[in-house]
Nucleic acid binder design. Structure first.
Lengths: 154, 154
DNA sequence: CCATCATGTAACATATGAAGTTACATGATA
DNA sequence: TATCATGTAACTTCATATGTTACATGATGG
């Protein structure tokens, strides 16, 4: 089953970076991602390897996006964050000679690949930019709702 | 990601039960599933709740299939073995008010359901009977291969 | 009726991997 | 050259799945 808390976490960080205008430190991202700086670096390292972000040391350093958010999709991020295979089934001993495993894989091998392909295809259809815009829309709505409450009290 | 060792394990057990003709004890299943009797009972309990198997205590007791293997498919087993949701994404704190989560879920909620549906649909297309037959075919072939090797040595 | 066999289940132990933490090295900037 | 920020190794939790022990319950055969 696909239950990725890392993707979600990273998206928090990336959304934070969009519009920041300047490098964002691991310290700052750690707050956005509700974790600590070292974990941030560890996770972001995957994105850097895929060329999605860049890191800079020293004063004024931190993390920046290397591409336009419209050119980054969620599949890119999912892969970068380290998702080996989505679907897999196997015995602990991973016995390749096991005839039961062979029968299962023969019956479902294509299915596994197909499910994975569908998942990545859909992730690929959502850009970071689109997500950011939707997020901003929700944020504005949320603020409006809060203001309305304040006015109602007045 | 879907990485179920339990389904695989259970299939070993069920294939062992098919053709046994009589109740199979947890002790015996434990060997087929490469684990121990208590774990077998724990896992099989899920199948029993779904009405796939029946358990009997005392002398001559053990586990039996309650249905024709042709009427049991892998989706039945997968569900019975305890697969809550296949695809899920969320922060540890599972904050329902989080606007990022909301944006992601809005963008991918349907995808999650679609991927899960595809996976279960494909599992549902494979019956336990079909799997058993394929397994037997492989077993026969394997034996033949071993005999050929013996003859070659002679 | 009682010894035996088998499941049912709680309680505890162990193993595995993810996440968090500490410590320190490296490089960049003022 | 003091400070800031990343890079990374090593270690410590923490959560979860699995394995184990122990004992209760129920069924069967003598």
């Amino acid at each position: 089953m696909i239950r990725d808390s890392r993707l979600s976490s990273v998206l928090h960080g990336l959304l934070h970076m969009i519009g920041a205008g300047e490098p964002v430190t691991s310290e700052q991202l750690a707050q956005a991602m509700a974790t600590n700086p070292v974990v941030v670096r560890r996770v972001m390292a995957g994105l850097r390897e895929q060329g999605l972000v860049h890191s800079e040391k020293g004063h004024g350093g931190g993390w920046t996006l290397t591409r336009d958010p419209a050119d980054i999709n969620l599949a890119d991020i999912y892969r970068a964050v380290g998702a080996p295979t989505i679907v897999a089934m196997g015995h602990r001993s991973e016995n390749p000679g096991c005839l039961v495993e062979q029968a299962v894989n023969d019956a479902l091998g294509d299915t596994f690949r197909e499910v994975e392909a569908l998942f990545l295809k859909r992730l690929g259809a959502v850009t970071l930019d689109a997500l950011a815009k939707d997020f901003k829309r929700r944020l504005a709505k949320h603020k409006q709702s809060l203001e309305d409450q304040i006015h109602a009290v007045k």
